[in-house]
């Protein structure tokens, strides 16, 4: 009995001793982040190595375009419509104070095309497609489906990761363009809630103030958003290793990190655009 007590107290002592190294902020926070960034960079490098090498999984790529792009369209369209409508309703009182209500279509259009449309659509996309990719790949990893592909002599990275990243990279810009169009229609409805502006006049005012330099950088940056959403989601799902808990964690981390990366990329894109123009 005495021995048992002594062993228990020894265990307690061991439990309260925290090595100095583990209290170091570098060890606690910075090193894991740097490690994760390095692993993500390695994953990205592997993507670029595999993407140009045959065989090309065209059938799976088309399937992913359908799942990631087409199936996200209803959600993106509804969000875009509400975005345009709400933005117009919220902006009207401020513009009315300055007697500049006639600027409403142009102001809303520039806001949507340049910034709000791409960022909000990318965030919605990260929530829908990103979490889906993260959870699906993590689930495949947990249930040994990825291992099964590997032992069949098929490259799972090429089949699962490369196709999803390409599909996401090319589908998001299309979704953003579609979302922008629906948003402008929502804005047109919003303008007409407290006014009477014809469809032709509304879009005449919109395109009067919109230029190619508004649209081009906004669309270009969405390719990077799409790439980053899928890259992070695939990375998180493909490297999941904690059973069913890991599936939830991967889906969650995919959305959080992809959303964060969208804001970071947007900040860089805005800086670059302002430098160029």
């Amino acid at each position: 009995m005495a021995t048992t007590n002594s062993a228990a107290s020894e265990k307690k002592e061991v439990a309260v001793i925290v090595p100095v190294e583990s209290r170091n902020p570098y060890t606690l926070f910075i090193r894991p982040i740097l490690h994760e960034v390095a692993m993500l960079a390695r994953f990205c490098a592997l993507f670029f190595k595999e993407v140009f090498a045959p065989p090309y999984e065209l059938k799976e790529l088309i399937r992913q375009c359908f799942l990631i792009g087409y199936k996200s369209f209803p959600l993106v369209a509804i969000t875009g419509f509400i975005m345009g409508l709400v933005l117009t309703i919220q902006s009207r009182p401020t513009l009315a104070q300055f007697g500049a209500e006639s600027w409403l279509p142009a102001m809303v259009a520039v806001s949507i095309i340049r910034e709000i449309g791409p960022v909000i659509t990318a965030l919605i996309f990260a929530g829908k497609a990103g979490s889906g990719i993260g959870a699906e790949l993590a689930s495949m990893k947990v249930t040994e489906q990825i291992d099964a592909m590997e032992v069949s002599g098929i490259n799972p990275f090429k089949y699962l990761v490369v196709t999803r990243i390409i599909a996401s990279t090319f589908m998001l810009p299309l979704l953003v363009i579609a979302s922008d169009a629906v948003s402008l229609y929502g804005a047109y409805i919003g303008v007409n809630l407290k006014g009477d502006v014809s469809f032709q006049l509304f879009f005449l005012k919109v395109f009067e103030k919109l230029s190619f330099s508004d649209l081009f950088p906004a669309v270009i940056k969405t390719f990077f958003f799409g790439f980053m959403v899928a890259l992070i989601s695939c990375y998180k799902g493909y490297n999941s290793n904690k059973g069913t808990v890991g599936v939830g964690e991967s889906a969650n981390a995919s959305v959080v990190l992809a959303s964060l990366s969208i804001f970071i990329l947007d900040m860089i894109a805005v800086q670059l655009t302002s430098l160029i123009t």
């Binding site: 249930t143 040994e144 489906q145 291992d147 099964a148 590997e150 032992v151 069949s152 002599g153 098929i154």
Partner: peptide, 20 residues
């Protein structure tokens, strides 16, 4: 390694069928 794997069959504990 892939060529060698094609000569080997592997039945996983959970069967590992592709869900989709």
């Amino acid at each position: 390694l892939n060529a060698l794997r094609r000569k080997i069959g592997f039945l996983f504990q959970s069967a590992a069928l592709y869900d989709s």
